[in-house]
């Protein structure tokens, strides 16, 4: 067969119309319910994941803490590109993530942002790349370029985008939307289930470890408020 066609078929992002033996490399999410719903039973590696949420993806980092912990074993960078704030190092350390691997990159322009993400994805020195694209519009071709950059390696890459982007077409293998803590909506999944909500139960929480992204609702919130002010 033509070698060019062979190469195309061997890519893991080529759709072949049947369930072939092409194994998608994946990484357990750390949440059993979510793993069950994902193709390959985990986060797809070597592809892009889009996470759509309000407030620059603020509600979503807890979803990736177990993955970061696993990837920390590899000793490679975990790049945060254009993060909204600084990750709190003692928290990461408490979760078993080597903070020395965390690289914060602050590109100044949109062009530099895309360049930095592409460099991080391509370089093979990152085990995870988290990039905050913000609310800006991105062309399909730009996102596709990032996806191709990730395809060359086993990097776990997450693009955080605003929720308005749900209406636009995107090449990512997995698109998730988060409207609240612990509830993930699968917008798009190649080879897997779509349009469903996954509730992340407390049973996956590690006992004794602060989960840090969800607190039980306190019925006595108002009274607490009052006492705090009067203190």
């Amino acid at each position: 067969m033509n070698t060019a066609i062979d190469q195309v078929i061997q890519r893991n992002d080529t759709w072949l119309g049947r369930n072939t033996a092409t194994v998608q490399r994946s990484l357990a999410t750390g949440y059993r319910k979510l793993d069950e719903q994902l193709y390959g039973n985990g986060w797809p590696l070597g592809n892009t994941v889009e996470l759509l949420s309000d407030g620059n993806g603020l509600g979503a980092m807890g979803l990736f803490l177990p993955a970061m912990e696993q990837l920390s074993q590899q000793g490679r960078w975990q790049a945060f590109i254009a993060p909204p704030y600084t990750p709190y190092a003692p928290l990461l350390e408490a979760r078993g993530i080597d903070v020395q691997q965390v690289l914060l990159v602050h590109p100044q322009s949109r062009q530099d942002l895309l360049w930095s993400i592409e460099q991080a994805l391509r370089s093979s020195t990152c085990s995870a790349v988290f990039a905050w694209l913000g609310a800006a519009e991105f062309r399909y071709s730009e996102l596709r370029k990032l996806q191709l950059a990730a395809a060359g390696s086993d990097v776990f890459s997450v693009l955080f985008r605003a929720r308005q982007a749900a209406h636009n077409h995107a090449p990512a293998a997995l698109r998730l939307e988060m409207k609240e803590y612990r509830r993930v909506h699968i917008l798009k999944q190649r080879g897997g289930n779509q349009y469903l909500d996954v509730n992340l139960g407390v049973e996956d929480d590690i006992p004794g470890q602060p989960q840090l992204w969800e607190l039980p609702a306190y019925p006595a919130a108002e009274s607490r408020q009052a006492s705090a002010f009067s203190a």
């Binding site: 590899q74 000793g75 490679r76 960078w77 790049a79 600084t86 990750p87 190092a89 003692p90 990461l92 350390e93 903070v99 020395q100 965390v102 690289l103 914060l104 990159v105 602050h106 590109p107 100044q108 530099d112 360049w115 930095s116 460099q119 991080a120 370089s123 093979s124 020195t125 990152c126 085990s127 390696s153 086993d154």
Partner: peptide, 30 residues
């Protein structure tokens, strides 16, 4: 190492710092 790492770790850091400036790439610590 099982990871597919093709270049030394510092090369990415250097590329980012060269284009974006030294201040634009940070590391965190406790």
């Amino acid at each position: 190492s099982s990871a597919e790492q093709r270049e030394p770790l510092h090369s990415l850091l250097d590329r980012l710092q060269t284009r974006l400036g030294l201040q634009s790439v940070e590391k965190i610590a406790c």
